[in-house]
């Protein structure tokens, strides 16, 4: 039977950050992974707060909201929203790329030609710009105190 195990990553987690000659997209991949893990961690806390503490009535709910209503959690919440904006839009870019929507018209490989990553670079920059716009929207609400 064929061995389906992935190639051994001899650099370990350090190799996520640096293995030489990484492009912008490779760092976005790292950021996608880190924000994903962060969102899982937040999700566990969030799910606990919105189930166990929500079902016990008004007093417990108000006490939970009172506990969470401090600057540390507010900034943390803004970071979570930022991570979501990045993870969602970068994920959309990855899906569009995987399905071939960002490939563009085929061109003959005549020197000097652009490689596949650089031909998709515009999409990457558009994604980052959209993330910035979304984060600014969330920041306006965060700075204004928001409803929560």
């Amino acid at each position: 039977m064929a061995d389906n195990r992935p190639r051994e990553n001899s650099l370990g987690i350090a190799g996520w950050v640096w293995a030489g000659n990484y492009t912008l997209e490779r760092y976005l991949y790292l950021l996608h992974r880190v924000t994903g893990l962060g969102l899982i961690l937040f999700g566990i806390f969030h799910l606990t707060a919105t189930t166990i503490f929500r079902v016990q009535g008004e007093a417990v709910w108000n006490a939970t909201m009172e506990f969470l209503n401090n600057p540390v959690f507010m900034v943390g919440e803004f970071l979570v929203v930022t991570a979501f904006a990045f993870h969602a839009l970068n994920g959309l870019r990855l899906i569009l790329q995987e399905l071939g929507f960002t490939l563009g018209k085929p061109v003959p490989p005549i020197y000097p030609f652009k490689d596949a990553i650089r031909r998709k670079r515009l999409w990457t920059l558009v994604t980052l710009a959209a993330v910035m716009v979304l984060v600014v929207f969330f920041f306006i609400d965060f700075a204004a105190g928001g409803p929560g």
Binding site: W61, E77, F84, F138, I140, D141, A144, P147, G148
Partner: peptide
């Protein structure tokens, strides 16, 4: 999740657009 976060966290911008949300975290 965008719907969820918009209702919970975009109150100022949504009210500017005409959607009034009264304190979504109140019991």
């Amino acid at each position: 999740l965008f719907i969820h976060i918009a209702v919970q966290k975009l109150g100022v911008i949504l009210s500017f657009l005409g959607f009034k949300i009264s304190d979504p975290l109140a019991f």
